[in-house]
Design a protein around this nucleic acid. Structure first.
Lengths: 154, 154
DNA sequence: GAGTTATTGATACCATGTATCTATAAGGTG
DNA sequence: CACCTTATAGATACATGGTATCAATAACTC
């Protein structure tokens, strides 16, 4: 997760203007360690800066996504609620999402995945160019909690 | 991809009623070999059976998804258009999606994936319970086409 | 400080899906 | 077969996530 200043510098370097609203949204985004929905972000921003428009939040999210500062992740939720956003660094990596507390850990495991890709390429004659992989499970902390007491949200 | 009759029988067996609208949506779904959006399905159904309500289409898609006859897949599309549906058989498997023609091939590659899961579990102490994996690339037919001429949609 | 232009906020809009509610029809029962 | 029960249908309104548009504003350049 890069710092606010680093991202601002990069925006500037790429010719984007360093506006107040952008800074605000960026700060709010980088504060979050777990995935958030656009609605959650929008709510938080309305608390701290009620003058900022909804469109600006979406535009900034979109910009940050294109820059790789934020990733969109998919969830098997109902309704339109299938997207969440997550601040993360740029390198290609995958996410490990805790079912219980929502925390996300990154992992970079490319050897096994490349083996899989090569095997599938061999068997199907596809030329594989990309992948989406997310693992879901229970993080160490939540596992410990559920072993001691039955409360399901930690 | 199971046949229409097999799915109807299963619906019946599980206590669902075999109604006209359900049959129609089911037939329309099973005809499709490539992923489709709800809008595409709805359009097609309006052509052949204009009296069927939109809600019924969504309800049937939902039912078929719960039964495993249809899978929701995620795409990195803009707007709300992130979902597509795909008729497929029930076994757990993954999808191989052609960037060019949209065709989807299933693959069952669990050895390499399990190796990956075990490795990540070891390194992160997560208890991994599930995954989402989709590979995207170019199918053999499209690869041949793009090699001969430059047209990008096959 | 002035000018250019990217960006903003407001508003209206679109698309995907769900909730609700009355009418209907499926399928079991006599 | 007629009847009853209840799942399901269609209609409508609504919720949500996101985009298009457009006049006003504020960043940066000179």
């Amino acid at each position: 997760m890069p710092g606010v200043e680093a991202v601002l510098e990069r925006l500037n370097h790429e010719g984007y203007r360093l506006t107040g609203p952008r800074r605000l949204v960026l700060v709010e985004v980088l504060q979050r360690a777990t995935p958030f929905t656009s609605a959650e972000l929008w709510d938080a921003i309305q608390q701290t800066a009620p003058t900022i428009g909804r469109a600006t939040v979406f535009r900034t999210l979109d910009l940050l996504t294109r820059l790789g500062v934020v990733q969109r992740i998919h969830r098997d939720a109902e309704a339109g609620r299938c997207h969440a956003y997550l601040a993360c660094d740029e390198r290609h990596h995958h996410h490990l999402i805790c079912n219980s507390c929502g925390n996300v850990t990154d992992f970079h495991e490319d050897r096994a995945l490349e083996a899989l890709v090569r095997e599938v390429e061999r068997r199907t004659a596809f030329q594989i160019e990309g992948h989406r992989l997310e693992l879901v499970g229970t993080c160490p902390a939540c596992r410990d909690n559920t072993q001691s007491h039955v409360g399901d949200k930690c």
